[in-house]
Design a protein around this nucleic acid. Structure first.
Length: 592
DNA sequence: GCCGTTTTCGGCCCGACTGTTTTCAGTCG
């Protein structure tokens, strides 16, 4: 069993212990151990075989022996007995917002509620409100939580769908006769959530049946919804539908364009084709009645061997899938003013990274090495400020200690570390660091981590007050952290962008695979207002650094060019950009 | 269950918010 499977089980054991009402520190020990296991850099098999598990902080003799069992045999009697002690439905119930282990245990003990279904029934029968410790409001909240949970099922995060699609495609590519295979649909457009996975393939005629069988029989399939000669649909075990369509070689570009969508984009495209005397569908162009060319005969479109040719035939420059949302892209394509979108390979570093100084999992040095391994020139460190106690916010002494370590690391060649901070914007709009301290950093990210329930007006005022302070560089997670289950905090982005523009500040866009990021909505207005964007993963672990690629998706959907983004600048360029927005730097540096 | 410059027992992060109470438990970040 591999590292992350072990971590998942330890985490589940921690949760089960919470549900059992065990010593909270015991359950926390399991959660901590799970995190530690996830963060192990060397092979877990090696650690087990060399009996060195307990060298890992957070793993003692008990959990160590569980891990040993899991790694060597794939099983653990402790895990099995813990699992069988409680109904599986209780774990499901944890997904309901506002319902934690204590209440789930209470409900289980009092009313034998052991699933979301029985919970809903009891709530509708007004039984929950009568339990001591609960009331009308809790009951309503639980019902609302169940509703929200239902609503979001059926939609899958981009990162999940991408992973599933990659697995199936890898499997299909091994099949005989598969000549072309591409992902289409909203997944190709990199929508933040997708409804299903659309795959498109060209397969030799004689191999079609076996390829279709391979598709419907592949290991990630839960059940087959339909199976035909050219189209099959399956439901994957992770609850998302996946369709495979087979087309002829010469239809492929048309089918790819058609099935990539969006529907609205295609409507505009087909309308345009009609005006030119052609009808457009997934198989190609066909001349329509009354179509006359210059010589009086029917005007035939050129053969299209790729999507670019289709757009060219319609007098348009190529439109990247991410832009096909009927959002002005066809007009821009006609004028030839579409931006050359930022690409992952343009990235030269990132900012807003945490380390073990606050709530990160990896050390400064580990993060620096990881950045270097990604081929980056620099990395911006931004650990939490002191008020963020839950995240081990840094004291002034911690910051000075970190500065020293950064200086030492920067002295060794490799990758440049910027001295930053993620400074809390307190509820009254003040910043968590005094002005004198803010001046010490290379850059300052300010963000909100508390009192989320303010009105939009208050929250906006709070953020703007924090953002406009001297020496503040950029706003962190501007729209809040939008998990599937949770809303962003209320804030007027128009006002915040205006303030950023007025005061010469930057805006960060976040990207994280398990987050529903709508930050792309900010990109175009930010660009138009001349605001620089930073693509930040809000990294807490080494692997988070590579999640900047999700940020690139966000930026692409927001029409950003490389030059609109801080991360694509050279070390020198970043230095200049940071100091351009932070007036103190020149003088301060000269004094040193 | 883990940990240790307070080291084999006793503490383990903490504050805001909500809904429930009448001083606090549960949830969240």
């Amino acid at each position: 069993m591999d590292k992350s499977a072990v971590a998942t089980i330890l985490d589940e054991m921690g949760t089960l212990l919470e549900l059992q009402g065990a010593n909270p520190y015991k359950s926390r020990a399991f959660h901590n151990a799970a995190r530690s296991v996830e963060a192990i850099t060397e092979s877990i098999e090696t650690l087990v075989s060399e009996d060195r598990l307990q060298e890992v902080k957070g793993i003692g003799s008990s959990i160590g022996s569980i891990i040993k069992d899991l790694v060597t045999s794939g099983k653990s009697s402790e895990y099995e007995s813990l699992r069988s002690s409680l109904p599986a439905g209780l774990l499901e119930m944890l997904k309901i917002e506002g319902l934690g282990p204590k209440r789930i245990k209470l409900l289980y003990d009092e009313l034998h509620i052991d699933s979301i279904a029985s919970l809903e029934k009891a709530a509708r029968e007004d039984k929950l409100a009568k339990i001591k410790g609960l009331g009308e409001k809790s009951q309503e909240k639980i019902l609302a939580g169940i509703g929200a949970l239902r609503q979001r099922s059926g939609k899958t995060l981009f990162s999940t769908a991408e992973r599933l699609a990659a697995g199936i495609m890898e499997y299909l590519r091994k099949q005989k006769g598969v000549q072309k295979l591409e992902v289409a649909g909203s997944l190709r457009r990199k929508k933040e959530v997708v409804g299903d996975i659309d795959l498109l393939a060209v397969v030799e005629l004689k191999n079609r049946t076996t390829v279709m069988k391979a598709f419907t029989g592949n290991p990630s399939v839960e059940r087959v919804l339909g199976q035909g000669e050219t189209k099959s649909s399956v439901l994957l075990t992770e609850g998302i539908q996946c369709d495979l369509r087979l087309v002829e070689e010469d239809e492929f570009p048309f089918a790819l364009q058609y099935f990539t969508g969006s529907k609205e984009h295609n409507v505009e495209l087909r309308t345009r084709a009609r005006k030119m005397g052609w009808s457009l569908n997934e198989y190609g162009f066909t001349p329509i009645e009354g179509n006359k060319g210059s010589k009086g005969g029917k005007k035939h479109p050129p053969k299209c061997s790729d999507e670019e040719a289709i757009y060219r035939s319609l007098g348009l420059s190529y439109v990247e899938p991410e832009l096909r949302e009927a959002n002005g892209e066809i007009e821009s394509a006609e004028k030839g003013t579409l931006p050359e979108l930022i690409d992952v390979k343009d990235l030269r570093g990132t900012f807003h990274c945490h380390t073990t100084y606050s709530d990160g999992l990896h050390t400064l040095e580990q993060m620096a090495h990881a950045a270097k391994a990604l081929g980056w020139e620099y990395l911006g460190i931004a650990d939490h400020s002191k008020v963020a106690a839950y995240a081990h916010g840094l004291s002034k002494a911690d910051v000075l200690r970190q500065f020293k370590e950064i200086d030492a690391l920067n002295a060794k060649a490799g990758v440049h570390l910027f001295k930053g901070t993620e400074c809390d914007i307190l509820p009254n709009g003040d910043l968590d660091w005094p002005a004198t301290m803010l001046a010490e950093f290379d850059y300052v990210v300010v963000s909100v981590h508390s009192s989320f329930k303010m009105s939009e007006k208050e929250m906006t005022a709070r953020i703007i007050k924090g953002l406009k302070q001297k020496n503040v560089t950029m706003l962190g997670h501007p729209t809040g952290r939008l998990l599937l289950s949770r809303d962003a905090y209320p804030v007027s982005m128009t006002d915040v962008l205006k303030a950023a523009s007025d005061y010469g500040k930057m805006i960060e866009i976040n990207a994280y695979p398990n987050r529903l990021d709508l930050d792309w909505r900010l990109c175009r207005p930010a660009r138009d207002a001349g605001i620089m964007i930073a693509i930040n993963p809000d990294a807490h672990r080494i692997e988070d650094l590579s999640y900047t690629r999700f940020g690139v998706n966000v930026a692409r959907k927001g029409w950003l060019k490389a030059s609109d983004v801080l991360n694509t600048r050279s070390l020198k360029g970043v230095d200049a950009a940071l100091h351009g927005t932070v007036e103190r730097s020149h003088d301060k540096r000269k004094q040193r």
